[in-house]
């Protein structure tokens, strides 16, 4: 078991290094951005008649930067703050800590992305298995074509298309906002029902855009497993089709964990479009408004959160892989 924990420990350390790298990158990006926003803000404040020292303190509390200090001191200060989970204060929501805003936005995104991921995974691997087993038939060809097609559609087009078809042409689902504002939030059936109804289209957007990748990978993987000796051997020993399918599915699923991370990143990236189109106050929406308002601390924080989410997904994928494949040493 100790090797198992060593492996997780290594992954977590690697994850922290990654987070550090991303936060450093954003620091320098913001710092070297044309029309340095920190300096601009400082100048604006001074122009507004705020004494320079006070202006500096204000900028520092916003960005976590100390203008006029040497760059490396600014950098260490920033990293130190990030390590203490202090992401500075928002500019557009003046004075509200970024962490506070992100924690409020996070659940929307995480729940939607995870649900979308689960739905796309289940539909995708099912379609992949069928597409592979029936690969010499119309059904298999059709599924392959559909997966390739859906895989190629950008998420924002998918989201817009779904919104147009199901809220405008056929008024089946409500559009915009995560729930009906007329219903007071609470743990009540009408409210939860409203949440669910509003969530259908955005989740479908995530699921359909992610489905193709799962289906295509699963199809290739199943096709290779089908040619493996132990599957033929099981067939020639008279093992039932259902048990054989279990052998095939479990073996074919292993390579999928390597794209789980990619998929999570892809979906979090997609949240920028999907949440904006469907008016969900999640991380993607936050990034979009932060971009529009040039709210750099908020933007940095949101990117950092997404990085953290992808890294956590990597660790989870690795863990699952270790549990599912006995060939990876655990002892």
């Amino acid at each position: 078991m100790s090797k198992f924990f060593k492996r997780i420990g290594k992954r977590i350390v690697a994850g922290l290094v990654m987070i550090l790298a991303v936060s450093s990158f954003t620091f320098f990006l913001v710092h070297f951005m044309p029309g340095n926003p920190v300096q601009t803000k400082l100048n604006t404040l001074i122009e507004e008649g705020i004494p320079p020292l006070q202006a500096q303190a204000q900028v520092r509390s916003m960005y976590g930067f100390i203008p006029h200090q040497p760059l490396y001191i600014q950098y260490f200060h920033y990293v130190w703050q990030v390590l203490h989970l202090n992401l500075g204060k928002s500019i557009s929501y003046s004075g509200v800590p970024v962490m506070h805003l992100l924690l409020k936005a996070m659940p929307w995104t995480v729940i939607m992305v995870l649900t979308g991921l689960a739905v796309s995974f289940i539909i995708g691997i099912t379609a992949g298995v069928i597409a592979s087993v029936k690969r010499n038939s119309k059904l298999g060809d059709g599924l392959l074509l559909l997966s390739t097609f859906l895989h190629g559609i950008p998420q924002f087009i998918m989201a817009l298309g779904l919104a147009y078809v199901f809220t405008t042409i056929f008024k089946i689902f409500p559009f915009g906002a995560p729930y009906n504002a007329a219903i007071s939030p609470g743990f009540t059936i009408p409210f939860i029902g409203s949440l669910a109804r509003h969530a259908v289209l955005p989740i479908a957007a995530y699921a359909i855009s992610g489905f193709g990748a799962w289906a295509l990978t699963m199809r290739a993987s199943v096709t290779s497993v089908l040619g493996d000796d132990y599957i033929l051997a099981a067939e020639l020993r008279g093992v039932t089709p259902s048990i054989r399918l279990r052998y095939i599915a479990r073996n074919a699923m292993l390579p999928l964990f390597t794209i789980l991370t990619l998929s999570v990143g892809f979906m979090f990236g997609g949240s920028i479009f999907i949440e904006t189109i469907f008016d969900y106050p999640g991380l993607g929406y936050t990034i979009n408004t932060a971009l529009a308002a040039r709210d750099y601390p908020l933007m940095d924080g949101a990117f950092l959160m997404i990085t953290a989410a992808v890294i956590i997904a990597t660790i989870v994928a690795d863990l699952l892989y270790t549990v599912l494949d006995p060939r990876i040493q655990r002892i």
Binding site: D229, A233, L236, R237, G238, T240, Y247, R250, D325, R327
Partner: peptide
């Protein structure tokens, strides 16, 4: 009928019998 012929009637060892077992079970 074929399934119950393979196994209970004819037991087989395959040429690639070193890889004839599911690696995950």
């Amino acid at each position: 009928a074929l399934r119950h012929f393979r196994g209970p009637v004819v037991g087989t060892v395959f040429q690639a019998s070193q890889n004839a077992m599911n690696p995950l079970a």
